[in-house]
Structures are given as C-alpha cells and as structure tokens.
Design a binder for these strands. Structure first.
Lengths: 216, 216, 216, 216
DNA sequence: TATGAATGAGGGTTCATTCAT
DNA sequence: TATGAATGAACCCTCATTCAT
C-alpha cells in the first residue's frame, strides 16, 4: 500500500506480488475451511479447526475473513456459482444436438459436479439452512433463481410446442425437488451404489422428469 | 388396576390425576418448544426460550426432558409419525374410488398436514439435518423408509401393469424430492400464493409425477 | 402434640405410638444416609440418593431433617459420641487390672469400633473436614476435647510418677496423631492385612506410644 | 537452539520472552488459586473466585489450566514435592553431626515449611481428601511413599542396632501420624501459641517419637 | 404425615472475536 | 502482515429446598 517512492515500477511489482500472495493465502484458508466444514458441519467446526487446518494463527484468520459465518458464506457463494455455471440452456439451433441428448448432458454435468465435490455439496444440502439470516437469504435467492430459470425454460418449451400444457410454476419446483433429492442421495450414500453408476441415475431422473410414472 | 379396598380407589384416582397432569404439562412444554424451535430454529433456541415460552422454571424443564436435544428429538418423532400416518396405500379393491382420485387425496392430505403444521414442518425441512447424530439417524431412517415404501408401491404398480417400465429406485426418490420441495415451498412462502391454493398445487404435483413434462 | 380431648389415655397411647414410629423412621433415614455417605462421600451424595436408599419421598426427608448438612452433622455427632464413649480412663484402684493391660484394652476398643464401623469412620476421617462451618467446629471441638482429655491424663500420670517428665501438650497430640493415623490406615486398607490383625496393631501402637523408637 | 542467521536471534528472544511471560502468568494464577483455596476450601472456591483474585478473565483461566480440579491437582503436587524435598535421610558418616541433632533438624525443617506455607498445608490437611479420584490417588500415593520411606529408615536403624526391636510397619505410621497431627495443629491454631514456639514443639515431637511416654 | 412436582440460584466450560506486540 | 494471548458473553445442566395437594 505504501506505493509512492523512488522506484514506482519495482514498487508496483512488489504490490503485485503482495496481492498475489494475499490471494493465494486467502484461497488456502478457504480450502482448509471447506474441508473442515464438509467434514464436521458448520456448527461443529470451530475457528480453531480452520486455522489449524490452514496452518495460520488465530488473528491471521480475521485478517482475511470477517468472521466464521463470512467465510462460510463465501464458500457457499463459490459453490452456488459453480452450480449455476453448470446450468446452461438447451441449444435449439438447427445444428445443435438433439434436445434430449442435451438434457442428459446437463443433468450428468450437475451430477458429476456433485460427486466430484461431495464435500461442498454436503454443506449445501445439509448445513446451510437455518444458520444465519444472510446465508439463508443467499440460499433462498439461489433456489429462487433456479426455479425461475426452470419455469422460464418450461414456459418456453410450452410455447414452442415441445412440452405439453402444464403448470410450469409447480413443474419447475418439482424438477428442482428431484435434482435436490438426487444430490442428497449422492452425497449421503458414501461409497454406495449410486455414485458408481452416476450416468444411469442421471438418465433415469431425466426420464422421470420427462415422462413421469405413466409415460407415453 | 382399579383395585377396590380400603382406600385404593382414592389412591388410584390421585395417581391417575397426577399422571394426567403430568402428561398435560409435558404436552404444554412440547408445544412451547415447538413454537420456539419453529420460530428461531434449533441453534438459536435456548432452553431459556423454551421455559419462558412454557412459563416454567429452569429445573422443571429437566424434569420432563433430558436435554434440549432430547425434546427436539421427541418433537421430530411426533412429526414424523404424523407424516407417516398420512401416508397410506391406494385401495385397489373393486369398489374403491378410482386410483387417481385416491392419489390426489393422498397428496392433499400431506399438503394440508404441512400447511396446518407449518411450524413443525419448518423444523423438519430446515433445521433437523446436521444437528445431532441421533437426530440425523432418525431423519435418514425416516426418509429411507418413505423411499422404500414408494419403491415398493411403484414396483407393485409396475407388476400390475398400471405403471410403465421404469427405474423404480430412482423414480421413488424423485417423487420424494417433489414432495419435499413442495413442503419447503409451502413452508417458505409465508402467506404467499401457494398455500392459499393448496389443492391446485397438490393436483399439479401429482400430474407432474404421473405424466412428467411430456405427458401423453 | 394435639393431646387434649375426650380420651386422653388412648390419645396418649396414640401419641406414644406416633412418636415411636417417628423415631424409628428417623433412625431408618439416618441409617440409609450413613450407608450412602460412607459409600459415596459427602459431596457426591445427593438428597436423592438418601431418599432412594431410605425409600421415602423427597419432602419426607425434610420432615425429619432440616437439610443435607444437618443429617450429616447428626451422623457425625452420633459417631463422635460412640468414639467418646469408648474413651474411658484407667482405673488406678488397688484391685484394678494392671495399667498396661487396661491401656491395651482401651486401644483395642477404639480399633474395633473403627473396624466395625468402617463406613462411619470413613466419613469422619475423609469427608468431614472443610464442609460446613458447623461441621468443622464440631470436629475441631471433638479433637480439642480428646486432646484435653489426653493431656490431663498425661498430666496425671506425670504427677503420679508413672510417666516421665515430658511436654504433655505435645505428647497428647502425638498420641492423637497415632490414633488418627491408625484409624485412617484401618479404613483405607480395604480387606488388607491390617484389619485382620487388629490386636497386634493395637498392641504395637500402644508400645510405640509408651516406649517410642528407642524404648527402655 | 539459538541458531544464528538472518533474524533468528530476535525470533528466539521473542519466543523466550513469551515463554517467560506465560510462565509468570501461570505462576500468578497458581498463586491466586492457592490463596483462595486455602481461605475458602476446595468446594467453596469457584473459578470465579480464582479469576477475580488473579485479575484475569474467565477464558484466560482455561488457557492455562484445564479445569478447576486440574489447577488444584497441580497445587497439590507442588506442595507434595516441597514436602518430599524436605524429607532427607540421616547422614551416618563418621564426620556427620550427631544423629539426634540431625533428626531435630529434619523435623524443624518440615515444621517451618508448614508454618511458612500455612495456606498450602491447610489444603493438604483439610481439603484434599475425598475430592477427586485423581487427587485422592495422588495423596494416598504420597502418604504411602512417606510411610515406606519411614519404614525402611526404621528397618535400617534396627539393623544397625540404633533402634530397639519394634514393629516397623506400625511404628512408621505412628510417626507419620504424629507429624500430620503436628501439621494440623500448626495450621489450625491461627496465631496461637504453637507456631511461635516452633522449635520447642519440633523437639518435643522428636522426643516423643524417640522415647514414648515412658522413656528412659 | 407423606408426597413429588416445581423451583431457580449457581456453576463450570466453550469459543468467536479483539488487540497488543 | 502475522501472531496468539486475552477476553467475556453465553449456555446447558444440577440439585438442595419448598410447597400445594
């Protein structure tokens, strides 16, 4: 920060290096926190656990994060962003792959994200709710946006005649529900059968969402 | 039990009255706890809040319940029992009402249960997970049993030719997911539109589960 | 207490019986308390333990004793009285048995009292000190009186030429110390060798007190 | 340890200073606790009292000691070590001072230790027993070791023909008893006559232990 | 007299956060 | 920036005693 002086260029380099170091340390702490939160849950994770895992001093933690709940919130946002990024629309262009195929791909993507980040997801599914007003709001907003996204997509599909006439409002959160349950199932069954056969499950979920119990 | 003799009747009467009183007090405390838990969440509910709401002394609480987590567990079991009770199979008898009608009835039942016990459900959906090993186990077991129940029902339907050929394992937790999401939605939207039109929503969820997005 | 009425004699009989019953119950509670105190120590004995052992209700306890410390105090007094009673002087009469023999007898008496009431003594030796101002005072007074008794006896012995010239003040509490240690030893070694050979030990203690390490 | 290099010296110095400070604070808390324990007794001493006396915050206490009973145990061990250190054998060498003189010195040593650390001793004599399993064990072990030490010394004396033939087992705890009683007496009589004339008392106790009541 | 439900002061301990170095 | 000692509010639970029945 003390940048003005004889050799601004070098100073810049220093500042840059400092910033880089700071960022890398931040990330290290976040990583440690993520591991601990995932393993022990929010309430049973103490700041002591995080700093121990990160190999830093108590005070250092508060140099990078405002509070325990703040770092958790950040972790949560990170996760939500990753999930959001994996939600992409269907390409209806002429040369695009067939829609069902695309949908399968979408679901498999999320499923793999979940399986690959089991720890993260555990937090999202099992720990995030009811902690903090801010965290709660964040989560609610996230699910809300997913819901809106799904509803619009369904609305679109309806308009385009791809989907039948249905209550898109309700259908959207039904889909959301199936996805959340899928995530929970994947997270819960530690080394169980589901995770090993991710693709089959993803397909089956898609099938259910498309055709329901009765199907065609 | 009601032995007649020198004065056992009076004694019995007293004991009975005492038991009754005890039971009623227990219920009162449970009720108070339920309200507080629902409002503030498990972690932000202190024993102090419960005893204040119940209008009892600190020690009295521990006369009826072993601990904060114990009373929560009991509340949870109560709720799960109610929910379980509302899950009843479909009557396939000759004179039974048409199956779809029965299914609608089933869903509406749960929906009303949820709406009528918003407080309880809030706990179930938002607070119960990740608290206590015992609570966790209870919940997991509950969802497991619901899942098994659904799977068997689907298996049955398939065998009877009512349902199409599908992955009953996955379909079962998809249904579970839609129901949970429905509950959450109902619980979350405080005085919003959904709860007011419960029956419509219930129908739509059923419709989704039966026909999916594409439907016939 | 409500004694005046039509039939005083019968009333008297009733009152007497009542008093008797009361006394016997008191004794029963005392006995139960003694057992519990001896087993668990003062601080780890709760009123609950006592009433459970006595088979009475919580409130009943306070009908007979003012408090937990009160019943303990009473127990303590009882014990001190027993010990005091076993401390009797030496008969210097012409036809009396030889003095050493009498002394041996005195010590053996105390030793047997201790061994027979190990529970009681445990309380006295291990639990009584530092509890309660009143209890403390009681104990101090007791030891004081024993000390005075011993000092006077020694003074007497000196005057009669039986004992050599010594510091009776100090010698008195030396004797007291050996006796207390003896008691503690007897109490502590549960089923160990000492208690089995009580008489030998008593003799040896007397021998020590009379002749010291150097002896004649 | 004191590596020389870029700036390790300063670092070492800092760590050293920190350790020193930590140690001094530990000692301060121990001292405060000792005073409070001695004045109020173990059971009536609350952590609040200790931190108030030490002028520290609640949490700070637990930074230095695991629990109330832990700090007490440490205090106890400290005391026992001091006492143990004051127990030294008699030098039988040719040029050594006369044995009786040495013995007088030994006793006076303990007596002065006790008088100088009245607070500590109060704890040892009056409070330590029956508190905690660990504390109990410690004490028992201590007395046991003193007893063994004395017995061996007596055994030795017997073998060397200095002492008469006596039951060393019993004699050892008789001596122990006289010493303990002496300590108690010194501790109890607050400002009374005994403490002022410590040397006389020590001599008298020795005299008693050597010659008994009858003596030569 | 007997009961046992009710009381509530009080205690030990934890842990997120601050701050002097 | 980094440290880690210090802080103190907060919380759960115990248990001797009271009191309405």
């Amino acid at each position: 920060m003390k940048a003005s002086g004889a050799m601004p260029m070098e100073s810049d380099g220093r500042a840059e290096r400092a910033t880089k170091k700071r960022e890398s340390r931040r990330r290290a702490i976040l990583g440690a926190a993520r591991r601990v939160f995932a393993e022990k849950g929010y309430h049973h994770t103490h700041v002591s656990d995080i700093i121990e895992a990160a190999g830093i001093a108590r005070g250092t933690f508060y140099l990078y994060f405002e509070s325990k709940s703040a770092i958790f919130l950040e972790l949560l946002e990170q996760l939500l962003d990753e999930v959001k990024a994996s939600i992409v629309g269907v390409d209806m262009g002429a040369n695009a792959p067939p829609v069902p195929e695309q949908l399968v791909d979408r679901i498999q993507r999320i499923v793999h994200l979940v399986v690959d980040n089991r720890a993260l997801t555990t937090i999202l599914v099992r720990e995030a709710v009811g902690l903090d007003a801010e965290v709660d709001a964040k989560l609610r907003e996230f699910y809300q946006s997913v819901h809106l996204y799904l509803r619009d997509a369904l609305e679109n599909g309806k308009r385009m005649g791809i989907l039948r006439d249905l209550d898109t409002e309700v259908a959207a959160f039904c889909i959301l529900g199936t996805i959340k349950q899928l995530m929970e199932q994947l997270v819960m069954d530690e080394g169980g059968g589901l995770a090993d056969d991710v693709d089959r499950v993803a397909l089956a979920v898609l099938d259910f969402n498309l055709r329901g119990l009765l199907g065609r």
